[in-house]
Write a protein that binds this DNA or RNA. Structure first.
Lengths: 215, 215
DNA sequence: TAATCTTTTGAACGTGCGATCAGAAGCGAG
DNA sequence: CTCGCTTCTGATCGCACGTTCAAAAGATTA
């Protein structure tokens, strides 16, 4: 009977190790974030990680899950609460870039992991499924806007690729330019893609939001 | 006096090894593209690479230079030949995505290298300088369009990040979906960003450019 | 306290990498 | 052929990594 498999202290250790892994990966890069170094950050010996996670791969998996949890927790409720697709798209940029600002380390760690984890023999990495999901989410918002008539009739996949591309380009920018103004960038992105997506034959005053007017 | 330092056969060997490195990296991923494997592709022994390049790092450098040469050669003349900034932006997308279609392997290899090469102690990689240059080039086109009045008054850096982001998102897409229609994608991107950048108070017909009208 | 289970240690092991180098092989000139 | 230079080989080295494990330390219960 192992329904309550993990003890309290075990959960604490795991959480601590995940935090240290995030710090190590985001600070020193994926390649330099060895298990020995991560363990040292946690003031423990190398064997601890294998003991609690079974191996490096599973620890990375735990890191990814943790960051994904953080991101979903922060972003999802605010996006689904939007009244219009236009607003949802704007909120999408705002929350995404706010997440990068608030959870800088976890974000950078996630990016490092996704970039470096590649499949055995060939090409597809196991973690850009995460990426695939994000793309589908964006397409859902775009489909919504096209249905209500807010958005013009563009190729949703192409637009989604551009939107995710813009967002995913930001972390690399943050590394080069730590003073990057993410709030400003979010506003610019939102404006840019509002102009790109909107149907001119639809009533919307930009700086104000009226009750939705489905037509 | 070493102006003619490299012999004919040496140049041939170097070129062959660069080709094999490109194939190995783009096919098996950066991590699995070891010097032994690259040498095997060239039907040679591991020591050859060190002999001709001095080390792995310098061979990678040669690969980057080669791909950059290919890209510049294909893209630059067509972009600078544009009559208007609007056209230049459209050509920018077309040529970039055509390069990805024609030189798939070299492009994927370059992306792998840029993603995996990180600086020693800390963060900034040596090869996203390439990325920095691309960003500056885009900003130049944007500044041109703003000066002629074709483009509205947006933040050039933010717009450039979005444009490069959209383009740089494509290689990852190509891996997932080999049947991706790059020509169609280029058209969608061009339209999208034309809508995002244009000044509505400007004459639409392309083949005419007026003196700048700053207000 | 004694017994038992959980957690931690740190050295040791296997593996795969890039680098090295002594010697072999190719090759043109004298 | 012999010499000298270039090019290549493949075994070997050192190194860093992830993993393993017997033993120690700590925690828990009777």
């Amino acid at each position: 009977m192992r329904s309550e498999a993990r003890s309290f202290i075990e959960e604490a250790r795991r959480a601590q190790l995940v935090q240290c892994a995030i710090e190590a990966i985001s600070s020193y890069g994926y390649a330099n974030a060895t298990m020995a170094r991560i363990a040292k950050l946690a003031k423990a010996s190398p064997g601890v990680i294998s003991y609690h996670f079974g191996g490096k791969e599973q620890m990375i998996q735990a890191v990814v899950a943790e960051v994904a949890r953080l991101a979903t927790e922060m972003m999802e409720p605010r996006i689904v609460a939007s009244a219009t697709a236009t607003e949802a798209l704007r909120v999408y940029f705002t929350t995404n870039l706010e997440f990068m600002r608030v959870h800088r380390g976890p974000l950078l760690a996630l990016v490092e992991i996704i970039n470096h984890e590649r499949g055995e023999g060939g090409r597809p990495g196991p973690y850009d499924a995460q990426h695939e999901i994000a793309l589908a989410d964006v397409e859902k918002v775009l489909a919504w806007g096209q249905q209500t008539g807010e958005f013009r009739d563009f190729d949703r996949r192409a637009m989604a690729i551009a939107i995710r591309g813009a967002i995913d380009a930001v972390p690399a920018r943050m590394l080069r330019d730590p003073g990057l103004d993410l709030e400003h960038l979010a506003v610019e992105f939102a404006t840019l893609f509002e102009l790109a997506t909107r149907d001119p034959a639809f009533g919307h005053p930009p700086p104000d939001h009226h009750p939705p007017e489905t037509e």
